[in-house]
Amino acid sequence: MSEDQPLSAVSPVLHELRAGTHTRHVALEKRLPFFSNTLDLEGYTRLLSAYYGFYHELEERLQHSPWMTHGFDLQARLKTPALRRDLQALGVSIQSLALCETLPALHSPACVLGVLYVLEGATLGGNVLRKQMSQRLGLEGHNGCAFLYVYGEATGRQWKAFLEFLGSVPLDAQARDQAVQAASSTFSCFEHWLERQEVLL
Rank of each mutant, 00 (worst) to 15 (best):
P6C: 00
K30C: 10
V26Y: 08
V112Y: 03
L166P: 05
S185M: 02
S49P: 03
S11R: 00
E101H: 15
Q158E: 13
A19H: 00
E60V: 12
A179K: 04
Q132E: 08
T69L: 12
F72I: 14
P81N: 14
R176A: 14
T21P: 00
S134I: 07
F187N: 08
R24N: 03
P170F: 11
M1D: 03
A27D: 02
L14W: 08
L113Y: 01
V150T: 13
Q63E: 14
V115K: 01
Q95M: 06
S65C: 10
V13G: 07
L194M: 13
S49Q: 05
L7K: 07
A179T: 06
H15G: 10
Y44P: 02
S184E: 00
D4E: 00
Y51I: 04
S168V: 05
T102Q: 10
P66R: 13
A76C: 06
S8A: 09
H25C: 01
A9L: 02
L166N: 08
G71W: 13
L201I: 14
G114F: 05
A183L: 02
Q178E: 15
A146D: 13
P33W: 01
A173C: 09
R85H: 10
F165W: 05
T45C: 06
S2C: 00
R157P: 05
Q174V: 08
D177V: 15
S11E: 05
A175I: 09
G152C: 01
L129R: 05
A182H: 12
E153R: 10
L194H: 09
L194R: 09
F72P: 02
